[in-house]
Write a protein that binds this DNA or RNA. Structure first.
Length: 463
RNA sequence: GGCUAGGUGGCAGAGUGGUUAUGCAGCGGCCUGCAAAGCCGCGGACACCGGUUCGACUCCGGUCCUAGCCUCCA
């Protein structure tokens, strides 16, 4: 298999070749745990979960997704509640894990937390200072962008250009307006740690450089995150890590996902168009949210409209329907080792994770399965469909349960429904269609749809 | 203002220098006691203007428009 990925560093599609032919290291920027996740926060974990699933087929993967648990937004939230920051971060980290589980996101191999790496962060900053790449000024330690000529390479901007449009006042203690903070002082009432520069806390960008170094060493294969992190976050990471390692390559492939649009613009609190994952998950199964996130290619912006979720559910109905009709039952074993994913799906994903094309391939398989009359062949196609979907983290639930366990209607218990359905079947056999139809419409009112077939009647919850 | 992505049928969203994306919605047919599900088929698109080419939605140039980044941000 040949996997191609779009590398932000080169702005082009590249053949993926890890430094170690058998082992791949991947680091993805995880959440800052100071509030509940919105749908935009969910895209990177889902996208990189798919990438991880693809990579694990061919390599031993070590996937790290960090937790930022010290940050000024966290500090502000803790202060508002008058609690330690740990209270805030523990709460929202737990919520994050719950949300991710609902989306079918597998746990990364490592989930490093910033507060567990303070000594290593301080140590990294010390080395940057010693090497002349950073300097202390008014209790801050700043990275000197002038000491790194390649600065701006990832985001494709030149230092002088950045100043032209600067919208913020530059702190007086900066040697260069683009210099950024590695360490900053903490006031008495703000969380802080002892350091050579006094009591303080790390700046935003160093944490990732330090945690990558601790867990992976100097060079990683893949670094991922949202497009909005390219500058300044990832640019600064490259500067720090490259400089502290005497110019050696920090990351081989930079992968960035596009942002989600709501009403044609980015979600933000100021616009008031933030969609909380929690709310969406109460409207639809997590799997539908996941599928919705995968309907667009990961590098494209995704238009999130009210229809997107409903359509994702319909798509899942169609695919699960094909599985159910083909007699596929039970929960998908993770890995799905019994059946190889079809080439059409694998090829699409190997082409820079083209999930829309992969989904199109899955729908073709669903149609093929529905069309096939031979039970053996039909089941084989359906199992292949499921194996392919498994690479996307989809169709892992029991097909029967998908239709029956929908939260949309719990007016009637399954046992009651079964009783009514079999009574109706009896009436149909006796030719009493009027009475049979009456039961059907009674069930319809309760949100139950009947599907008759030569093999008997079955039912599902209406959407 | 600078940098970076885009503009595809009613909607979402792939892709390609000449042949069907796919899903939903719509229309016709089959199946069904009637439905539902499913199957078969049908319409409908490549922002605009030039250029290259035997031929461009696909390449090149220009115009218009949109989004993101340049400040915390997935």
């Amino acid at each position: 298999m040949a996997l191609y990925l779009h590398n932000t560093l080169s702005r082009s599609r590249e053949l993926f070749e890890p430094a170690d032919p058998e082992r791949v290291t991947m680091y993805v920027c995880g959440p800052t745990v100071y509030n509940l996740s919105h749908i935009g926060n969910a895209r990177p974990p889902v996208v990189f979960d798919v990438l991880a699933r693809v990579l694990r087929r061919s390599y031993q993967l070590v996937y790290a997704r960090n937790i930022t648990d010290v940050d000024d937004k966290i500090n502000a939230a803790a202060k508002t509640e008058n609690v330690e920051i740990g209270v805030v971060t523990a709460r929202y980290f737990a919520a994050y894990l719950e949300d991710m589980a609902m989306l079918g996101v597998q746990l990364p191999d490592l989930a490093p937390r910033v507060t567990d790496h303070i000594p290593q962060i301080v140590n990294l900053i010390e080395r940057l200072v010693a090497a002349g790449h950073a300097y202390e000024a008014e209790e801050h330690v700043l990275f000197s962008v002038a000491s790194y000529p390649e600065y701006g390479h990832l985001s494709g901007r030149a230092l002088d250009e950045m100043l032209a449009g600067a919208r913020v006042d530059v702190a007086a203690y900066k040697r260069d307006p683009a210099d950024f903070v590695l360490w900053k002082p903490s006031a008495e009432d703000v969380v802080g740690w002892a350091s050579p520069w006094g009591r303080g806390r790390p700046g935003w960008h160093v944490e990732c450089s330090a945690m990558v170094e601790v867990h992976f060493g100097e060079t990683i294969d893949i670094h991922g995150g949202g497009q909005d992190l390219v500058f300044p976050h990832h640019e600064n990471e490259i500067a720090q890590s490259t400089c502290v390692h005497a110019g050696r390559l920090f990351c081989r492939y930079w992968i960035h996902n596009g942002l989600i649009h709501v009403e044609s613009e980015k979600m933000s609190k100021s616009v008031g168009n933030v969609l909380l994952l929690r709310d969406l998950l109460s409207e639809a199964p997590g799997e539908a949210v996941r599928l919705a996130l995968l309907t667009a290619h990961y590098r494209q912006p995704l238009e999130w409209t009210p229809d997107v979720l409903a359509e994702a559910q319909q798509k899942l109905d169609r695919m699960y329907g094909a599985l159910r009709a083909a007699g596929v039952s039970g929960v998908q074993q993770h890995g799905g080792a019994d059946e190889l994913p079809p080439a059409s799906v694998v090829d699409a994903l190997n082409d820079d994770l083209n999930t829309p094309r992969a989904l199109a391939a899955l729908f073709k398989l669903a149609r093929e399965a529905n069309r096939e009359t031979d039970p053996e062949r039909r089941s084989a196609i359906a199992r292949s469909l499921r194996a392919g979907a498994g690479l996307l983290g989809l169709l892992e639930a029991d097909p029967e349960a998908w239709f029956v366990d929908s939260a949309a209607s719990a007016a009637l218990a399954a046992a009651e429904i079964d009783t009514l359905v079999s009574r109706r079947e009896q009436l149909r056999k006796e030719g009493d269609f009027a009475a049979a139809d009456q039961i059907r419409s009674q069930l319809e009112k309760a949100g139950i749809v009947i599907e008759d077939s030569s093999a008997g009647s079955r039912w599902r919850r209406a959407r």
